[in-house]
Design a protein around this nucleic acid. Structure first.
Lengths: 165, 165
DNA sequence: ATCCGTGCAAACGGTTTGCAAGTCA
DNA sequence: TGACTTGCAAACCGTTTGCACGGAT
């Protein structure tokens, strides 16, 4: 498989991150295959982006890259070993972001009007963390709050349509 | 259509709630049809339950009740007029709860191990409300946090599988 | 008469799965 | 060698949609 050279231009941490990913994967008794490496590289290239399975598949040439089934299976594996966190953006497909990019988790405000996704750092809502801590609840997916963002509320002053969600 | 007599045993508020629902629906220029009434009654019978479309359809006899398409369309209408709030429980289907049952919203802790859904009142996390207020963000969907609940963490002491989600 | 709502069935789209071939330890 | 992975294509499943009928305004 050919790689996409994501990340090489965005910081030298990619190599280290990749070996960390490899360790993570192998410690969980999975194999570090070329397909899995390639998909890790995609995330390492844009660690804060929320990728959908289809978007990942589209980054590779049809003949060269992993097939859809492999992408889905790989995303499940990477989530299982803790390298990915699922993000629900309400657009009908599962999305994931690179988990290690943000040790302190965050949550998302998803606008169902314009689709904008805003990240709110966990530290801004210590109460939520306190509740989760009190409940002994181990978070695996970043919570999303759906609604209308400021901009959309100002524009569509009257009734608001839920079209793009 | 025959009704399901949900709610008659659970409190006399049903009639009032139903007329309120009717008003809500008609004010939004929708018609208060027997199917819509029947589906409202389902929610009024268990105002805190998170119903999926298929569950609602299954409450009626095949020949008597609204068809699947009507259920989906009705849920969209009821959400549009503010009678329902969508709840994401991560089980692959859209769920809704009766909105008026809880004026102060809440959020959900969804266990991907056992499927349990715990409601956390908004008042327990004023920071979240403060952030949303500061951002001028109008919430339309109750946020869900996915993870492993205390009980599941204690049982599956070692590795945890994400099977039931 | 007209518009809205319903029911049926077909279409849709993201995701999963069965199976045979390929790959890594 | 033996278990794990991949790829393909078909299956899945919740949801949406086109269309003709029926009821309400």
């Amino acid at each position: 498989m050919g790689h996409i050279d994501e990340g090489s231009s965005k910081g030298g941490g990619t190599v280290a991150s990749l070996s960390r990913a490899r360790r993570n994967i192998e410690e969980h008794h999975y194999r570090f295959t070329p397909q899995r490496e390639a998909i890790c590289r995609v995330f390492l290239g844009e660690p804060t982006r929320h990728f959908a399975a289809e978007e990942i598949r589209a980054l590779f040439s049809r003949s060269d890259g992993p097939g859809p089934a492999t992408v889905y299976r790989t995303l499940a594996v990477l989530q299982d070993v803790g390298l990915l966190r699922r993000v629900d953006t309400g657009d009908g497909c599962a999305r994931y972001e690179w988990a290690p990019h943000d040790a302190t988790t965050h949550c998302h405000l998803v606008c169902i009007g314009c689709g904008a996704v805003q990240e709110i750092d966990w530290s801004h809502m210590p109460d939520l963390a306190a509740v989760l801590d009190a409940e002994d609840f181990e978070v695996t997916t970043l919570p999303s709050v759906f609604g209308h963002c400021r901009r959309c509320r100002e524009q569509g002053s009257g009734e608001m349509r839920t079209d793009s969600a």
